[in-house]
Design a binder for these strands. Structure first.
Length: 816
DNA sequence: GAGGAAGCCATTTTT
DNA sequence: TGGCTTCCTC
């Protein structure tokens, strides 16, 4: 296959070229055909960037004499990587096999495995999942006797992660923290945490990148090899890369300087986890003699939707200069519905969906509809209403498959069987299902291991030698027996991998335990059993995929002149040589599940999709509903005191709006019950940023008492192709005009809307300098009051410790 | 060691 | 509100 491509190449380059850019606009073509040197593609929403990337890769291979193995393409998610792989494969056929397409993490992991010893790890180092990470941190916090109120697990975890994202070591943090006690403690935890990881020959997710940078920086020969190999590097979603990722790109591209990044600063929505929007702004400075191409034609949305999106994002400062436009029709106006409460909002959405999917002409498939929200907590009412209407839906986000307890437990068993030095996994499952090995015993086990300087498993195996374990020896023996038996099974290599997985579920007792719970009437248990079955099908899929890949490599290998492409041959060899034993498969599967946490669900089904706006990035829907368009929900209250965060919220709004192709529905409520409290928020500022011409309010006079009965007001129904009947035609002065509702809601932005709390803290009476009592932090002084929406953010000083809290919800009381 | 009651605290998420 | 942790009791 490789040879044939070369012949193609020689035969008719021009023809090939034409074929590769067919159907692309001139600017897209330019991006595809760019030859050498750094290239920044500023790709607006819906501008066809994925197409450009895949075509570009094909062009490099087919017309520029670049070997697939000389290309590194990095995407944001595994899903995106798979899609890209598929598309490139379609265009290139076999020859795409050698391309490195994947996320930063998977690509760097691949590199790290090859050279682990260079940075002091064994090749089979393990990767900690978030659970392990938290457990470990918790232990360390307890060991260091750090007060939980001062520094909780989540906070340190974030701080350590963000330090790693910026390539800061614990020493860096410590040096930085001379006068800051809290930071000193974080540095201390960080230090112990790294030591523990090292001891366990393991890394966390961030370490994969950090260690890759260290490897490349400190080993010239390794760096040389990869720099030479990767003649072209492409990075998608560049606006969401962090500093470490930037360093990786910088290092790897330094030799050939063929670095092509694609991104859109307006869609940068991950700064909360370290993404650095400056990376995209600085590209031209960072990569000398770079070329910038702007994809500004949008192929997705109507003029109306795009106009609204542009108007909203325009409110942000410091954007790269670009103007998204479209040749699409004007389309229907965006609708806005203000509901009384969240139930009514949900019912409105459900009935609108029914209408869209059931109308006689131009109906829309449920699968082409998305319901988006700022926070996952908003999905509950929607679910209820959809079920009520018999609309099929799928919820994305929230608890992911691989984060579920039963899946983690199962994988922990697998980990222990695979490597009995995986102590975190041992501790996770030693008493799951319950077999009488409680916290005290676990504590003793660890003490013994520490005292004797032997691995935990060793202690378990020799439990009867330690009198303090006597009460638990039988249970321990049982546990050790299960592991040993399964381990032997793996080494015997008589089962297929899925069969083996099944044995683990059964012999561990996990399945049995759940079956018993189910028999007691637990619905959750039933669900968990389903999930365990689901992971068995994953194991089948995994096995088949590996077999297929090996086939492919064999084929490729036969056609390959080793001297010509040594790296590709090496890749082929690596997999070719694998014995495909149960042990190998187990290791591979574990690695994949550690990294590929979203093997996405059945997407083919025709269902409405519900998700947080973050998860919708990269997707598109014919009709989009964005619910919860209220101040303090969206934008979230946390962004009120930070212009930066507010801009990110706005970008999020922009992402949400631009997901819609034809119909966009925005909804808000007058009163919302969220987190057990009813709030009266005003309508989101993002709504008022959309010019009147693009939007129309449904319902109109909201305040008549009659509006309680039906709840939902839907006009039109099935009589006509347009979803917007005449009554709703927008005019700036009509009863349903947006200026009216926004005006009337401006009035609501008054203290009267405050919901009084139990302790009757009257926001309007608080003054700076006043002392208030907090039920946790004690007496504090109000240093500052920032009024936001119908609430206020108080900056409180509790004897030197500064805290910010919402006046309405913080447990504060006046002092008499 | 296990199970129940009470208390606590709430973005966004991929790897 | 509700999911999760911690504390308390048997």
């Amino acid at each position: 296959m490789q040879k044939r491509n070369l012949e193609d190449n020689a035969l008719n380059e021009q023809e090939l070229k034409d074929m590769l850019v067919e159907g692309l606009n001139p600017i897209q073509k330019e991006a595809v055909l760019h030859k050498n040197g750094p290239l920044l593609i500023l790709a607006g929403a819906g501008s066809g960037k994925t197409r450009v990337i895949t075509h570009r890769i094909s062009y490099l291979v087919k017309c520029c004499g670049i070997w697939p193995s000389e290309i590194l393409a990095i995407t944001f998610t595994n899903k995106a990587a798979n899609e890209m792989k598929e598309r490139v494969e379609k265009m290139l056929g076999f020859s795409s096999r050698g391309i490195w397409i994947g996320t930063f993490h998977s690509m760097m992991l691949r590199i790290l495995r090859q050279h682990a010893e260079r940075i002091g790890f064994e090749t089979n180092f393990t990767i900690l999942d978030i659970d392990d990470q938290q457990r470990l941190l918790k232990e360390i916090l307890a060991e260091l006797k750090i007060d939980d109120d001062l520094l909780n697990v989540r906070t340190v975890q974030n701080k350590i992660s963000s330090a790693k994202n910026r390539m800061l070591s614990c020493e860096d943090l410590a040096n930085d923290a001379e006068y800051d006690n809290l930071r000193k403690q974080v540095a201390e935890v960080y230090r112990n945490y790294q030591l523990a990881l090292k001891r366990g020959n393991s890394m966390d997710f961030d370490d994969i990148l950090v260690n890759a940078v260290k490897l490349l920086q400190n080993n010239q020969d390794v760096l040389d090899a990869y720099q030479t190999r990767f003649k072209h590097i492409l990075v998608d979603e560049y606006q969401d890369t962090n500093h470490v990722q930037y360093l990786i790109v910088k290092l790897l591209s330094a030799k050939h300087k063929n670095i092509c990044v694609v991104g859109d600063d307006d869609q940068s929505i991950y700064s909360f986890r370290g993404a650095n929007i400056e990376n995209i702004f600085n590209f031209e400075k960072d990569f000398k003699r770079s070329k910038v191409i702007k994809l500004e034609q949008n192929y997705r949305s109507t003029k109306t939707i795009l106009g609204a999106a542009n108007a909203v994002i325009k409110q942000n400062d410091g954007r790269t200069d670009k103007r998204l436009w479209t040749e699409e029709v004007t389309g229907d106006p965006i609708s806005f519905y203000l509901a009384d409460n969240q139930y009514e909002e949900a019912r409105y959405v459900a009935s609108e969906i029914k209408r869209l999917t059931e109308r006689r002409t131009d109906s829309i498939l449920a699968g082409d509809i998305g319901i988006l929200y700022r926070v996952n907590a908003l999905s509950r009412n929607l679910e209820f209403a959809l079920r009520e209407q018999g609309i099929k839906y799928n919820i994305y986000g929230g608890l992911r498959f691989y984060d579920r307890k039963e899946i983690r437990d199962f994988l922990a068993y697998m980990r222990v069987i695979f490597s009995d030095t995986d102590e975190l996994a041992i501790i996770r499952i030693i008493n799951v299902p319950k077999r009488g090995i409680g916290d005290l015993t676990v504590e003793r086990l660890r003490n013994i291991a520490g005292r004797e300087g032997i691995p935990l498993m060793q202690v378990l195996v020799n439990a009867d030698q330690f009198p303090e374990l006597s009460r638990a020896t039988n249970s321990i023996r049982e546990f050790v027996g299960i592991i040993a038996e399964l381990r032997q099974m793996m080494l015997d290599n008589n089962l297929s991998f899925p069969e083996f997985a099944r044995e683990i579920q059964e012999r561990s007792g996990l399945l049995q335990d759940l079956v018993e719970q189910k028999d007691d009437g637990s619905e959750q248990a039933l669900n968990r059993i389903e999930n365990l079955k689901e992971i068995l099908s994953d194991s089948i899929e995994y096995t088949e995929r590996i077999k297929y890949e090996i086939e492919q490599f064999k084929l490729l290998d036969e056609n390959l002149d080793q001297a010509e492409v040594p790296e590709l041959a090496q890749d082929a060899q690596d997999i070719y040589d694998e014995d495909l034993s149960l042990t190998t498969l187990t290791g591979g599967f574990l690695e994949q599940t550690a990294l590929f946490s979203d093997l996405d669900q059945s997407e083919a089904e025709n269902t409405v999709r519900l998700m947080a706006i973050h998860s919708a990035k990269g997707l598109e829907f014919d009709a989009v509903f964005i619910v919860g368009m209220e101040e303090s929900v969206f934008p979230g209250y946390r962004s009120f005191n930070s212009p930066h965060e507010m801009e990110e919220e706005r970008r999020l709004a922009y992402v949400g709006i631009t997901r819609a192709k034809r119909y966009l529905h925005l909804t808000a409520t007058q009163s919302r019950l969220l987190y057990g409290q009813t709030k009266y928020n005003i309508v989101s500022r993002f709504l008022s940023e959309i010019p009147d011409q693009y939007i129309v309010e449904i319902g109109g006079s909201r305040h008549s008492n009659l509006s309680h009965d039906s709840g939902v007001r839907v006009f039109g129904g099935k009589n006509g192709p347009s979803s917007i009947p005449d009554q709703r035609k927008y005019s700036s002065s009509g009863p349903g005009s947006k200026s009216k509702i926004l005006g009337s809601f401006g009035l609501r932005n008054k203290p009267e809307t405050n919901l009084k709390q139990k302790n009757q803290l009257d926001i309007s009476s608080i003054k700076t300098g006043q002392s208030l009592n907090h039920n946790k932090f004690g007496t504090g002084i109000v240093e500052r009051i920032d009024f936001v929406a119908s609430d206020a953010i108080l900056t409180m000083n509790f004897s030197g410790q500064i805290k910010r809290m919402m006046a309405s919800s913080a447990p504060l009381e006046k002092i008499d």
